Amino acid sequence: MAADLRDTDVTVNLLLPGGPTVTGMPPLDSVPEGRKFLEHEVMGPPIVSPASDDAAGVHDERIVAAEFERWLHARNGRR
């Protein structure tokens, strides 16, 4: 979809939580040993970010919410 819309005013990005997330869907005992559930709030900042002026030109990105700060820092470093 991102490739199809590349030359338009529509931006397309993929947002993933970055692991199993407390949503009420997966059973709480279904996380593999050594892992933990992410809280659903992890999605907040990366969901709001595309509406900001800072997101102008962000297109065809795979954004992992649990690593959002790292992604944002790396992206700002490319400017």
Rank of each mutant, 00 (worst) to 15 (best):
T8D: 10
T8S: 15
T8E: 11
D9E: 15
D9V: 06
V10P: 02
V10C: 12
T11C: 10
V12P: 01
N13K: 03
L15P: 07
L15N: 10
L15V: 06
L16T: 09
L16K: 08
L16M: 12
G18I: 03
G18C: 07
G19T: 05
G19Y: 06
G19W: 08
P20V: 04
T21N: 06
V22W: 08
T23C: 08
G24S: 11
G24K: 12
M25N: 09
P26D: 03
P26E: 04
P26N: 05
P26A: 04
P26M: 08
L28T: 11
L28H: 10
D29L: 01
D29F: 05
S30K: 06
S30N: 04
V31S: 08
P32C: 01
P32V: 05
P32T: 04
P32W: 14
E33T: 12
E33F: 05
G34S: 08
G34H: 10
G34N: 09
R35F: 15
F37R: 12
L38T: 05
E39A: 13
H40D: 11
M43Q: 14
G44L: 15
G44P: 00
G44A: 15
G44S: 09
P45C: 10
P46E: 07
P46N: 09
I47P: 00
I47D: 03
I47H: 12
V48L: 15
V48F: 12
S49M: 11
P50C: 07
A51V: 11
A51I: 11
A51K: 00
S52M: 13
S52Q: 11
D53L: 13
D54C: 02
D54V: 06
A55R: 05
A55N: 03
A55T: 02
A55G: 03
A56N: 09
A56V: 14
A56F: 10
G57L: 09
G57W: 10
G57C: 08
D60P: 01
D60I: 00
E61A: 07
R62F: 06
R62C: 01
I63G: 03
I63L: 02
A65I: 02
A66Y: 01
E67Y: 00
E67M: 01
E67S: 05
E67R: 13
F68C: 02
E69Q: 14
E69T: 13
E69S: 11
R70E: 13
R70W: 01
L72T: 02
A74E: 15
A74C: 00
A74L: 09
R75H: 10
R75N: 01
R75C: 00
